[in-house]
Design a protein around this nucleic acid. Structure first.
Length: 181
DNA sequence: ACGATGATGAAC
DNA sequence: TTCATCATCGTA
């Protein structure tokens, strides 16, 4: 059955980050830049949940870098880290509640820095709404992901975050051979 | 296991 | 103004 591609609206993101994150698995990240369009299926994400989450940038209050997370949902939060890499997040939840989903892996691009490099994502996207106008958006193409087709694990690279490092806020789509199809 | 590489935020 | 840290990756 063919399902017309649907661009996810901001209302999709105006929910708990722990609800949005698993719902992004199987969705398509679409990048239109320089006359080219590339779309890749999202297979790994992480949730960063509010001011109390010590792994979340917002846990130390609002700053110039993380300000976008305090704004409306459905906008890109792109930031520079380790002196060379860009990370791509989508803001979730109500305005003034800082939360976002980090998109770690999509299509053939393994790892959040390799993904942003391949899709030419940098500071230009930060704060822009996800949508065709910004050249970067997410589509629902009808792929259904059941709970038994995903794994939950602790987040990567946040060992400093105490009990928050142990929470299973990372969601990974199972490999095709492990999938129920 | 570690260095690359520079922005960020907190301390001074 | 300095300094430690960092939601990573490639090489060893």
């Amino acid at each position: 059955m063919f399902v017309m591609p649907r661009v996810l609206p901001s209302s999709f993101f105006r929910r708990s980050v722990l609800a949005v994150a698993p719902d992004l698995l199987g969705k398509f990240l679409v990048r239109r830049v320089g006359g080219e369009t590339l779309s890749v299926m999202i297979t790994e994400v992480e949730a960063y949940d509010g001011p109390h989450d010590k792994a979340c940038h917002a846990s130390r209050g609002k700053t110039p870098r993380n300000a976008v997370m305090f704004g409306p949902s459905g906008r890109w939060y792109a930031y520079f880290v380790y002196g060379m890499h860009w990370m791509l997040n989508i803001v979730t939840g109500e305005k003034d509640y800082p939360a976002a989903v980090l998109i770690r892996t999509a299509g053939e691009f393994t790892g959040p820095a390799k993904l942003t490099k391949a899709l030419r994502i940098d500071r230009v996207l930060n704060g822009k709404p996800a949508g065709k106008k910004s050249g970067l958006w997410i589509e629902d193409r009808g792929v259904k992901v059941l709970p038994n087709q995903m794994r939950r694990t602790p987040r990567i690279g946040v060992a400093y975050a105490g009990i928050w490092a142990k929470k299973h806020y990372r969601f990974v789509l199972s490999k095709p051979k492990e999938r129920n199809t």
